[in-house]
Design a protein around this nucleic acid. Structure first.
Lengths: 171, 171
DNA sequence: TCCATATTGTTTGTATACAAATAGTTTGCA
DNA sequence: TGCAAACTATTTGTATACAAACAATATGGA
């Protein structure tokens, strides 16, 4: 029983460390490239897609469109990206890298996600399966709470949440 | 090989889901209590300690003191906490809950950390060990990068980083 | 065709989050 | 004792991050 308690607090601590380290990685990339973590992340997604519209960029970054607009404003003022309004659908704005943006992308370091992939490639399938199962358990514990109990109790709350829930649940 | 690739992308996805769900939990607590996630977290830490000075609060929350000052400003304007300058060391400001803050704390929901503990308690020691080992591996992969290679290359960078490194590495 | 509705990006307002600079205070050492 | 150095909380400035409201545009149905 006491042993279990220790294991649980170890797990909690490791989750917290994971969060901290990912944040630190982002800050490190910032020192090396001169742009912030989220800005670099946007550059990477835009570079992958060559050209991408704002709403799709927001979805791929798991961010709110309003947040992406701010990030793009700053990247544009640094001449790293270009906005181009679509002629087919004039509501749409496409974003792509400038030559400067492309250069920065070429010399940019990996973000946490890249490091993780690199490190995991050294592991056996069995070990990978074990890691994945463990994470799956954590997600299930927290994810089970995602079915909100007030779905039954109140409709108002759900109506108010509709827009943001949709924004968050883009797969 | 292909199987390994799938496992790796599953792991990455689960890490990302973990981040998202923790953030969502924070927002849920916000709807229920009327105060934001970080504010509730501060209330919980302050309540645990009865009285705590700003710098210790910042350490326990793994946040920069400047951030905590802002959070406390807002909690104070809602009459949920009190600031009291120490008479022993007049540089120190102690914070404690008001009766209102105490009431809110009593009725506040668990944050993600609490849910995680609750869910994990249902697991066997073997399963807990497995989860912990998996997380440990992820932390090691990312943590290995924490020894910065430019420690040798450049001293200037390290001098500039000294202050922030210390702030980040509070254990 | 015409208009209600939906989509898309932006603006506005608020809340984190941190680095750097600052003011007030304490401590250590010469 | 007296002063340099360290500590503590705050202020200032910048960058996320999102909800809500908005303007411009597109689409579908009557």
């Amino acid at each position: 029983m006491l042993n279990n308690e220790n294991l649980i607090s170890d797990i909690i601590n490791n989750v917290r460390r994971l969060f901290q380290i990912v944040n630190e990685q982002s800050k490190k990339a910032e020192k090396e490239t001169g742009i912030t973590g989220p800005q670099l992340w946007a550059i990477k997604v835009i570079g992958d897609a060559i050209s991408i519209k704002i709403s799709d960029l927001a979805k791929r970054m798991y961010l709110h469109p309003a947040t992406v607009v701010g990030i793009l404003d700053r990247l544009e003022s640094q001449r790293l990206v270009l906005r181009e309004r679509s002629t087919k659908d004039r509501r749409v704005v496409n974003v792509r890298l400038t030559d400067q943006g492309d250069n920065l992308l070429k010399n940019a370091p990996e973000v946490a996600q890249g490091l993780l992939v690199e490190g995991l490639e050294a592991f056996s399938a069995e070990k990978l399966k074990m890691i994945d199962d463990g994470l799956e358990s954590l997600v299930e514990i927290l994810g089970a709470q995602k079915i909100p109990p007030y779905l039954i109790r109140s409709n108002e709350i759900n109506i108010n949440r509709k827009r943001s829930e949709l924004d968050n649940n883009v797969s």
